[in-house]
Every structure is written in structure tokens, then in C-alpha cells.
Nucleic acid binder design. Structure first.
Lengths: 362, 362
DNA sequence: GTGAAAGCGCTAACAA
DNA sequence: TTGTTAGCGCTTTCAC
């Protein structure tokens, strides 16, 4: 069932064939396809029938060469293994499809060289627009974008002072949000299992947000309480193991995403550490499966599907293909479930005081 | 940051520009790009420099028109919200990228009309190959494939007698595998929370496999013990609620995938039903998060990433772009964790006997 | 080893 | 309303 050799170029039915059959010129057939209203009912009918009879399929490549537009958008995302990118890419595709655009997808797997290659390939193929994930990109990537003049949108992150087209939310703010929640609960030793920050400004921003929130509260994110791990259950497991092995372990652990948090939660369970009584654990992303955590994770909710959808709308707008409004900055919210009750024995006094110390010493 | 109007067609650096600058003909520049070995060292050098200086980027569309090949593959998948399709599409992309191909992705969301549209769009854009998920497709889809003569591979499923190019595994066999496991444990009243089978032959096949296995054992998958739900946690929750509301509820529930199983497990927990002591629950797909089930799910493992990778290899092979070997039929295996112990009180006698009846009556 | 010329299939002025 | 014509930027014989 798998012939080893390529087919010869298939005999193709061209617009010229249709023209001959319908007894009209090529231009007329072309119009029939693009602006049928510009034709008389009779000829349109003739062309349509001829086209149908021959099973004509328009040659998009030739059309693209003639018009200078491919009706194709290229998205370079980190990976499809992470549900947040998969889901947002899915809704991006739906939005684009609605407007008659096709989506090229490339994954760079957190390798900036791969991103450059993908952008170059997209431009070379003549995409009408490009979607990139995150704010930080290799200079070469931005140069390609600039020189080719291909419209683009950066997605999954934004910043108040962003000077480029972006759709997303502020990951630093998200980090602050969850850290402030923990601080309000009285935690003073907060640790973090972050995602790998190299090549991932979203992960870096979340970490930075947590750090700033703690600093603002006169606390500090101790270097020995920060660990970076890939977004996987095992990453969470390893991360928590490391943090708990510290001389003075944290009373709360902020995880860079829900998968890490679920991994950490699993390990806490295995070690018979009561969450949240003895230890608080939080996540990011609010994935559907997050509620499977036991206890369910307190996390920061990002509207994954909306991000992709709005990104598509933003791009289409730049292309003049829609007048739809869209949000450049998307709402996020802290979803408090119950993996973050205050540490055991925390009192009002301690809450305000400075002498708080982690309860668990293992 | 979002200009509302489209750019004018950007001034582009063509191959002709490079030719002029290098003082050679267009043909020579073209050769420099495609078969550099056919040029003298000196001219190649000149062309290369000129090309670099001008920042020339080849015009893929024009090249495609001239060569009749776009170096693009189109994949029509059900949805990116389901991790199995996201992950396999990701590895497909990696495989294709390795061979210099770009991937167009369209999601049909289990709508066969959408699939037809996508295939038509792909063919129109001149893709060199197409990937479709599943064995069953609308006649129109297959007709388009046949008439356009575009090579294609059907993925995520195969069957011993499949007469089309497929890469995947036998979902019926997978269904049988898990049902036989339950039968061996002595279950006689087995229920199933299947995925929506309409437009999804994988879901239908899994159901069929379970049904056949039971039939072979002289048992029966009672219609009132079969419920179809979308692949979501809530689907699992609703499904189990329905099955448990039956006059004689099942002692084991086969879920159409791991998400459904996790949802069912969650509900069992909520109802204080001990799994597996009082009720067995199983899944399909063996997603990483499946181990978060409590107890961890017994499930059928499918190698998601390999499916995409092998699909890519199969397609490239048809295109004559690789000689790599690949497996058309992929291995699957039953992963027995511990959500499927026999029902409480099941004895050897009962195991062999005929009078077994579900223990739980609620 | 290199160049000239003829398209690939379509669209878009401009004419009629 | 319809046809004629000239490309879009590249590849590819076929000469030289």
C-alpha cells in the first residue's frame, strides 16, 4: 500500500480547459470564480456547468503568483505537546478558516534557530501573515519580519508598553497575582518550580512576577528555592523534591504551570505531606485537568482558546479582512480552589509579624 | 499597534535582481540555488555574494508554479483540543520539517463536510501530500483524493485488510484487549462510556472491540450500559452517573479514552465508590496525566508520537523523499495499573461460574 | 559551464 | 459584459 516512487505530474484541468469547453475566454472563467456578479447570468451558468463537468479545481499556486497573496498564515509555536499551545492554535485555525485562510504550523521546540528557520520558510512560501509566541525573539527573526514586511502578531503575552502587535496577557502580572495571594495568606518562605526560562519569556515573566511581589512585601525569593524544570509531571516531582531537600524548605510552592503543579502534588501525596495544611501548591494556566489535583489546584486562569481566536482576528484585521474588534490584552484571573490554605497554625499575629518560619522541617 | 489596512505589495528582491548584480543570467542564479554543483566555483561565489548582499529570499510560490511541487503537506485532523491528535501532529511536523516540508493543519471538529472542504482547499493549494485521521471518510473526500492523485496516508487506525495507505493500530483489537482483561478478572456486567462514534471510526471501533470480546465470552454489552459522550471530564462524569443509575449497574466500566476515565473516576470518588474494589474503570490512550487517576488507570497504550512520525515517513516515502523504513501497523499494549481489580468478593468459583452478578446495587 | 527563451496557470488592466 | 494581452518569479530545455 505504499508505492515507493513519486507519481508523475498529474494531468491537470486548467482554467483554459474550462474556457474552451464553455466557449468563453480564460478571463471570463477567472471572473466567474472571483467576481461572479460581474458576469451575465447566462455565461456564468455556462462556465459553472463546464467547470463542474470537468471537475475543475482552481490552481492556488498560480493564483497566488498572479495576485501576490496565498491566503495562508504561518504560526510558529513552541510545541504541540503543551495543551495551551495546541488549544490556542486550534482556535486560531478556526478563526482563520472562517475567513478563508489556511494555517501553516511549525514547532520550534524552544530553539530560537528553529524559529528563525521556520519564519524564513514561511516568508519564502509567501504567507500573508505570521503568528509568533511570546515577546522575545532572536534579532534575526525580527529582521526577517521587518524586511519582508509580512504582518505579524506576537501572542500569549503582552506588556503595557509593548511596541509590537501583541495579543495575550501580562505574565508578570500573573506571577504577581498568585504570589500576592500567598503573601496574603501569610506565607513568608515561598519557593518556585518554574518552567525552563531560557527561550521562554512567558516562563521568565511568571518567575519575575513572583519575585517582584515578594520583594514588594519585603520578602525574597531565595535562589535556593527556585528551580527550573520542563513542563511535565516529572518536572514537578523533581522540583518539589529539590525544594523540600533545602535546609529551610518553603511553606508554599508556586509552580510554573498546572502540569508541574500536578506533578508536585503527586509527590507531596507520596510523601504524605498534607496539602494545603502543611504546604501550599499553586499552578498556572487552569487546564481542565487541573481540577483533578487533590486538593484541586489554586491557579491562574488564562483563556487559551480566546488567545488563539483573538490572535486570528488581530491578524485578519491587519490584512483588512475583518472589522471585528478584538482584545489585545486579555483578562486573567486567580482561581482559588483549595491547595493554598494558610500553613498550619498561622495566626493573625504571625500574619503581620516578621518572625514567621516554615512549619515543616523534614 | 494594529494598523487596520493591508500593506501594498512590498518591493521584492527577485532572482533577476540577483542575476543583474552578479552579472549572470537568471538561469545561473536559479542553478546556484538548486544545483550549485553544476556551476563553476567562481560564478557560484559571485552569485552567492550578490544574493546575500541583496538579502534575496526565494519566491516559493513562483518556484512551485514552475516545478509543480510546493513542499507542503496538509493534515486534516479532528481537533487540537485532544492531546493525542496534538501530539501526533507535532511529531508529524518534526518529521516533515526534517525533510524540508511544511505542514498545513486544518481541524474538522468531527464534521465530515469540514473535512471535505479542507481536503479541497489543500488540493487547490497544491499540497504534495495529505494526511487524514481515521479509516472512514466521506465518499467525496476519497473522490477528491483519487481524482487529484495527491498521495495520502490515513492515520491513527488500521485494519488487517486495509486497502489504503494507513499508519496506526487496530482500534477494535484495542477494545478487545481491555475487555478481555476485564473478562479474565471475572466481570460479567461491563458497561462502556464511549466517545461520540458518529464521524469517529476510532471510537466506534473501540466500542465494537469491547462488544465482540464480550460476545466471544458469551457475555453481552447491554445497550443500557453503553453511553456516548464527548471526550471530556464532564463526559466521563455524566457517563458514569447514567450507568450507575441503571437497574443493574455494571461492575466494570470501559471508557473510550483516558479523559473520560478520569472524569468517571472523579465521580466515583465523589460518590464514595471504591475503585477498583467496588467498580473497575479503564481508559484508552495512556496519556501522561492518566497516572494522576486515583487509583492509576488501567489503560491501553498507544504510541502517540510514533504515529505522527511514522505517518510522515510513510508519506515522504511515497513522495520518494526517503528510503526510511516505518511501521504501518504500530504496537499497542495493555498497561495494567490498578483500577481494575476484580469486583469485591469475586472468587475462583464465581470466576468460572455463570451466576455472577454485580455486587453493587445502588 | 552559461545564456536565451519558453512556459507553469492564473489575474488584471485595457479594449472592445 | 466579455476578450486580448501582458505579466507574476521561477525553472528548464536547448543552444552555444
Amino acid at each position: 500500500m505504499f508505492p515507493g516512487r513519486p507519481r508523475s505530474r498529474p494531468a491537470i484541468i486548467t482554467l483554459a480547459n474550462v474556457a474552451r469547453k464553455a466557449g468563453v475566454s480564460k478571463a471570463t472563467v477567472s471572473r466567474a470564480l472571483t467576481r461572479p456578479d460581474k458576469l451575465s447570468k447566462a455565461t456564468l451558468e455556462r462556465v459553472t456547468r463546464a467547470s463542474k463537468q470537468l471537475g475543475y479545481v482552481s490552481h492556488g499556486v498560480a493564483r497566488a503568483l498572479a495576485t501576490g497573496t496565498t491566503h495562508t498564515i504561518g504560526a510558529v509555536i513552541p510545541t504541540l505537546e503543551n495543551a495551551i499551545y495546541a488549544v490556542s492554535t486550534g482556535s486560531l485555525e478556526r478563526r482563520l478558516d472562517q475567513a478563508g485562510y489556511l494555517l501553516l504550523v511549525a514547532c520550534h521546540e524552544f530553539n530560537s534557530q528553529a524559529e528563525i528557520r521556520a519564519v524564513r520558510a514561511f516568508i519564502s512560501r509567501g504567507v500573508d501573515g505570521i503568528v509568533l509566541v511570546g515577546l522575545a525573539h532572536a534579532p534575526e527573526t525580527m529582521q526577517l519580519l521587518r524586511e519582508s514586511r509580512v504582518p505579524y502578531v506576537l501572542t500569549w503575552s503582552t506588556r503595557p508598553q509593548a511596541r509590537k502587535p501583541t495579543v495575550g496577557f501580562d505574565n508578570r502580572y500573573a506571577g504577581r497575582l498568585i504570589a500576592e495571594h500567598l503573601i496574603r495568606l501569610g506565607h513568608q518562605r515561598v519557593g518556585m518550580i518554574a518552567g525552563i526560562t531560557k527561550g521562554n519569556d512567558r516562563a521568565a515573566d511568571r518567575l519575575m512576577g513572583v519575585r517582584h511581589a515578594l520583594a514588594n512585601a519585603g520578602l525574597k525569593l531565595s535562589p535556593e528555592l527556585v528551580v527550573e524544570r520542563p513542563y511535565s509531571l516529572d518536572g514537578g516531582t523533581e522540583g518539589i523534591a529539590l525544594l523540600l531537600s533545602r535546609h529551610r524548605p518553603p511553606t508554599a510552592i508556586v509552580c510554573g504551570n498546572d502540569i508541574l503543579a500536578l506533578g508536585a502534588l503527586r509527590e507531596a501525596h507520596a510523601r504524605k505531606i498534607a496539602v494545603p495544611r502543611e504546604l501550599s501548591i499553586t499552578g498556572f494556566d487552569d487546564m481542565p485537568i487541573a481540577e483533578l489535583g487533590n486538593p484541586p489546584l489554586t491557579t491562574v486562569h488564562f483563556p487559551m482558546a480566546e488567545i488563539g481566536w483573538h490572535t486570528g482576528t488581530a491578524l485578519l484585521r491587519t490584512l483588512g479582512k475583518t472589522e471585528d474588534a478584538f482584545e489585545s490584552e486579555l483578562p486573567i484571573r486567580l482561581v482559588v480552589r483549595n491547595s493554598t490554605a494558610p500553613p498550619e497554625g498561622l495566626s493573625d499575629f504571625e500574619f503581620k509579624g516578621k518572625a514567621f518560619s516554615g512549619r515543616r522541617q523534614r
